[in-house]
Design a protein around this nucleic acid. Sequence first.
DNA 1: CAGTGGTCTAGACCACCGG
DNA 2: CGGTGGTCTAGACCACTGT
Lengths: 242, 242
Amino acid sequence: MVNLPPTFSPLYRQIKSLMIQALESGEWRPGQAIPSEQELAVRFQVSQGTVRKAIDELAADNLLVRRQGKGTFVASHADPRALFRFLRLTPLSGEIVALKSEPLDCWRAKAGQEAARNLSIELSAPIIIIRRVLKHESKPIVVDEIYLPGEIFGGLNIEMLRDWQGSIYGLFESRFGVRMLHAREKLRAVSADRSVAETLGVAEGAPLLSVERVAYTYGDKPVEWRRGLYSTAEHYYLNELS
Amino acid sequence: MVNLPPTFSPLYRQIKSLMIQALESGEWRPGQAIPSEQELAVRFQVSQGTVRKAIDELAADNLLVRRQGKGTFVASHADPRALFRFLRLTPLSGEIVALKSEPLDCWRAKAGQEAARNLSIELSAPIIIIRRVLKHESKPIVVDEIYLPGEIFGGLNIEMLRDWQGSIYGLFESRFGVRMLHAREKLRAVSADRSVAETLGVAEGAPLLSVERVAYTYGDKPVEWRRGLYSTAEHYYLNELS
DNA sequence: CAGTGGTCTAGACCACCGG
DNA sequence: CGGTGGTCTAGACCACTGT
């Protein structure tokens, strides 16, 4: 007997795919309500229960947000609740506060080996690099570099970053139509070199948390690679294992 | 108008509570199958769909595992798939391999302020402390201390730890009936002090990843507090943001 | 009040597993 | 083949939101 590949796909997953298409194509925009379950059931010619199960999965994937009595909405990085999902830094004592971003630099370059591999693009393809500092009450806590495919983030420049109030993923979403859906982070402990030590106001050789992230959009396509160094003297990185 | 507390609890959540009771009481044991959906529907006098939704949530919470065609099983730390859920260390290059645990010491003590707070027990209540080294191909990677409430882990000793093959949560589950359900980790970067540097075979002052964990059992009751120091020269801590 | 998502039911049928 | 979980449907009713 041969082992056939799992060729079966339930109806609600096919509906889910169609809905992802509608999201990806921009038919339904971040922050807006999608059609009601009834309307979708008619549109896709299935029962409401089947639409429901598709939406359930999309909500679990953080692509949609359900609000009883109001409707189902496209998740948006403009929503402050989405913030902590991607920056899990917490003060040792006190409440969670959004860090203030200060762009230092933003320039064009060609993808090196590492950037090309992480972004799944050609070697020497155009990329954009951002250097930032994140501050908590005017104390620098994080310094990072963000590598973006030039093909997608064409017009990005430092003025845009400076003018933007809110998370950088909110900027990517509203100005470039790029929605970060999930990410994978690799954490290590490293020593501060001289220049980083100066930027963060710590001693040279001080231990820092190194966080390397690849973020993905629809179809698990990588669209951002970043490396950050976190000063964990007065903050920690919180992770829920569940 | 006053804002009444959310007094409404859907039927499937009540069923879920009853099922959690059955799990907590030991009526259904780790690794074993629970009754079929039909049987549960009869037992609880609800429809199969309602039982189904309760099980769905319990499976999402990692308390149960569904296996089509076979049944629904109580999740167990004996299952190797459960391993990576709680130890997210990965070699820089190469496959994920379970680290080998070497207990160094295991002794009784009284809870200090920090232990008491983290374990939600009285100051000076009896606790048990374990010191371990975790090795990858005979190279020490992690050194940690585990703090356990003495009341729950009465007979624990170092011979038990040495004899046990498998994860320590597997031991807790099968010997003490304590099931770790979720945990919260705080990560920071620190410098190796002399004694730790010696144990891990790194230079004094080398950067290490500090991982402090509180693990919880039924009813969000904390039952373990541990602090680990990870050498991240050849490993990283992997985290999925989704 | 109308419209939305949320719950609950009952029944039919399908995919998977093991004997 | 029988038993399990998985899918799909149709309909009734409930809880929440805004007008």
